[in-house]
Simulated scan of single mutants.
Amino acid sequence: MNAIEQDIYDRLGHVIDPELGKSITEIGMVTGVRVTPHEGEDSNTTNVYDVSISIELTVPGCPLSKTITDRINAAVGSYTEAKLIPHIEVGSMSQEKLAKLVEQLKAERHENPFNKPGNTTRIFAIASGKGGVGKSSVTANLAATFSALGYDTAAIDADIYGFSLPKLFGTSEQPVNLNGMLMPATAWGVKFMSIGNFAGSEKAILWRGPRLQRSLEQFLADVWWGSPDVLLLDLAPGTGDMAISVAQALPNAELVVVTTPQPSASDIAARSGLVALQVPMRVRGVVENMSWFEHKGEKLEIFGHGGGQRVADQLTHALHYNVPLLTQLPLDPEIREVGETGRPAVLDENGKLRDDDFAKAFKDLAEKLIEPPQL
């Protein structure tokens, strides 16, 4: 019995808490494993055992309780030497135990986990010169694409005044507060934080520069992100306080500039990239949105053409390194309609990448960005 119990406990060490990204045994969630001979309809069959597993969740009524118990059942089911019938008893941690866990996590995390030595997270700040060019839609779809491709993906809604990620991801879920440390909301495989998860979409935000900077610091330092492969930031339009704060807090961030084809948008978009002349951020490239509208097989350039390439050329000349036009995206009412339902348009209802030109463009964009920049 002891050998089976130890084997089951070892297997539970591979069950990962979906919020903390750590093993449920490592964080003390498993408080007991007990194996006894099964006394039921299979009692006359050899090698049939009941397995009683006691776990303590970090908070009572944790919304991810079923996910955790499903993973435990799968771990128990992987034991092939005998038939095991799992029984899971779910409780919650005491305040003292939770406080010790949070202190342990904070000690591991440091203040800004994305600046600590050895951090491998790729950080992309999505910028634009003006509003209305589809920057937030690009952020949401790019994040969903990275996640669908298997990358551990996080996103921060750094557009405090014009936050939109909760609507684009289809959730207003409030982050779980673990003794002062927040667990990010999760939708479509993406962990994200937005002031909209606290303020509500109907409220206006009236903050000045110092408070804006503090909000970003809190999103970075007071949230348990784990170790994501990719972090996306949806910046506010222009080159204001938040863009400077991102550059100061995340000097390893790479800038992606979003524009539309017409000169009135592309000329302003170039300015958002030129911020790299004054802060330590590299511009990875340009995304041209709303490039054409397809009607009866013909591509109609409603907003003109060439804006994305103009921005790429201007930035290449000013920054003295190659800033490519990464992709061009169509203007499609269906993309807007799907996005407004709370599902990134690159995904189908099951969260898989769609097999269409729009999703393929984002897949290509993600693959280009994840490659190391050419110096």
Rank of each mutant, 00 (worst) to 15 (best):
L347H: 00
D10V: 14
E202D: 15
E298W: 12
T153G: 07
I27T: 15
A253Q: 04
L64K: 13
G297F: 06
A247K: 12
R310A: 14
S201Y: 07
K130N: 00
G129S: 10
V35K: 12
T67S: 11
T259Q: 11
R109P: 10
A125R: 00
D70L: 13
S172W: 07
V76H: 12
F163A: 13
A276H: 10
A247G: 09
D313W: 09
E349W: 09
D70E: 15
S147H: 03
G307W: 14
G226W: 04
S194E: 14
G162S: 06
P280E: 07
W224T: 03
T259G: 10
F169I: 04
Q213D: 06
L168Y: 01
G131Q: 04
A345K: 01
D234Q: 02
E56N: 15
F362Y: 07
A154W: 12
T153Q: 01
K360P: 13
E56A: 13
P280N: 09
P251I: 03
T25F: 11
S201T: 06
S54W: 00
T46D: 14
S172M: 11
V59N: 06
Q328N: 13
S78H: 08
E288P: 05
V258E: 05
P228M: 10
E173D: 15
A269F: 01
V275G: 06
